[in-house]
Computed example of a mutant assay.
Amino acid sequence: MAKPALAGLSPFNVTSLTLGLAFLYLPIVVLVIYSFNASRLVTVWGGWSLRWYFEFFNDAAMLSAAAMSLRVGAVSATAATILGTLAAVALTRGESFRGRTLFSGMLYAPLVMPEVITGLSLLLLFVAVDAERGFWTVTIAHTTLTMCFVAVVVQSRLGSLDRSLEEAAMDLGCDPLRAFVSVTLPLILPSIAAGWMLAFALSLDDLVIASFTTGPGSTTLPIRIYSEVRLGVKPEINAICTLIIGLIATVIIAASLASKLSSRQGESAAPL
């Protein structure tokens, strides 16, 4: 018989957990509920309505910003996944190459560096090379930010795999590249997918770095929402944020499921 999830926890721990979850998620629940508010006043409940969702889908500026965020997220996540996977392979398979410590430190730096510093340094770089700020500068900036997250996810899966599988494939006539593509790549594919979805979610959510690297005609949705909120919270903002929460939650759940699948495959392929 399965034990309850909270079995063994003291009343203090249960209370602390409940208060912590309420602190994190109660504001989100209130925002989602008020996105269906029929009243024009954000703090006054006027009944259930889908009015503000229709307002959003009729707002050309918001739709343009949402489309820009989706494009930037898809392109930057794809580029970050490719580069992050290659970096993870280099760190996992090249234990003794010179400069490995420096390379890993530079790769993981965006994980701990404040986004303000990252955004400002990228802005100075684009100004120095006289690059016109727009879609591609934001995409490059988000690729820089999210690549390290992909590398961490993929590297953890690569480290749990048994390299003798590739060696067996090479004994059967495969060259190293073909052995990697035929044997290792299918095993780490769920972690690569999880890395892509995590990179996409981080790109879609970013405000600070995008505000430094964007230009005219390339406003992302977080920047647009921030500019609207500064003039006062409109009920339409609640609807937009609810849609973003739903999209991000879907991406995170899919990434978590893919990561668990990759972990199970890695355990089955690990040496006994």
Rank of each mutant, 00 (worst) to 15 (best):
E95G: 15
E95P: 10
S96M: 10
S96L: 10
S96Q: 11
F97T: 02
R98G: 03
G99W: 01
G99N: 03
T101P: 00
S104W: 01
G105H: 00
M106Q: 01
M106K: 00
Y108Q: 07
Y108A: 03
Y108P: 00
Y108H: 03
A109P: 02
A109C: 06
P110A: 03
P110M: 06
P110G: 03
L111V: 08
L111S: 08
V112T: 13
V112K: 04
V112D: 09
M113E: 02
E115W: 15
E115R: 11
V116P: 08
I117R: 11
I117G: 05
T118M: 14
T118H: 00
T118V: 14
G119Q: 02
G119V: 03
L120M: 11
L120K: 04
S121L: 10
L122V: 11
L122D: 04
L122W: 11
L124I: 10
L125N: 03
F126T: 14
F126E: 07
V127K: 03
V129L: 11
V129C: 09
D130G: 05
D130K: 13
E132I: 07
R133Y: 04
R133M: 15
R133H: 06
G134I: 05
F135R: 05
F135V: 08
F135P: 12
W136G: 11
T137A: 07
T137D: 02
T137M: 07
V138D: 04
V138R: 10
T139E: 05
T139P: 13
I140N: 04
I140M: 13
H142S: 01
H142T: 06
T144H: 14
L145V: 09
L145A: 08
T146C: 12
M147G: 05
C148S: 15
F149Q: 05
V150H: 04
V150W: 12
V152M: 14
Q155P: 00
S156E: 09
R157M: 09
L158F: 10
L158T: 03
G159M: 13
G159T: 11
G159K: 14
S160L: 10
L161R: 09
L161C: 12
R163F: 05
R163G: 11
R163N: 12
S164D: 14
E166F: 02
E166G: 12
M170Y: 02
D171W: 00
L172S: 07
C174S: 11
C174L: 07
L177R: 06
L177E: 09
R178T: 07
V181I: 05
T184F: 04
T184H: 10
L185G: 08
L185D: 06
L187A: 15
L187D: 09
L187R: 15
I188N: 03
I188C: 06
L189C: 07
P190F: 10
I192F: 14
